[in-house]
């Protein structure tokens, strides 16, 4: 593991935004996850960029979002990526 992650194939996740949360149905496990920002955005960034680390995700998101100080934001994204990998939403490389 080198801090790099890859999005699951698009067919693995069904994404349904509701008014205050986003629902993710993970087909391989049959689990439903209720997530809020920034998890959907991180997933979107990984899907758009192929694989990458927290810095790459940060740089992609920073094009459209104000993420605050870079180092703090990267650290928060890295923690999210680790959590997401633990439940199978992204794959650690």
């Amino acid at each position: 593991m080198n801090g790099h992650y890859r999005a699951e194939p698009e067919t693995a996740l069904v994404v349904r935004p509701l008014d205050d949360i986003v629902l993710l149905y993970h087909r391989p496990s049959g689990q439903t996850h209720m997530v809020v920002s920034p998890v959907p955005e991180i997933l979107e960034a990984l899907c758009a960029g192929g694989d990458g680390d927290a810095a790459a995700v940060h740089d992609w998101l920073a094009q459209t979002h104000d993420l605050g100080p870079r180092e703090q934001a990267i650290s928060a994204i890295a923690a999210h990526l680790a959590d997401m990998a633990a439940i199978g939403l992204v794959r650690a490389l």
């Binding site: 509701l18 008014d19 205050d20 949360i21 629902l23 209720m34």
Partner: peptide, 8 residues
């Protein structure tokens, strides 16, 4: 009631 709470 928000949709997230309704779903849950």
């Amino acid at each position: 009631v928000g949709q997230g709470e309704i779903f849950m």
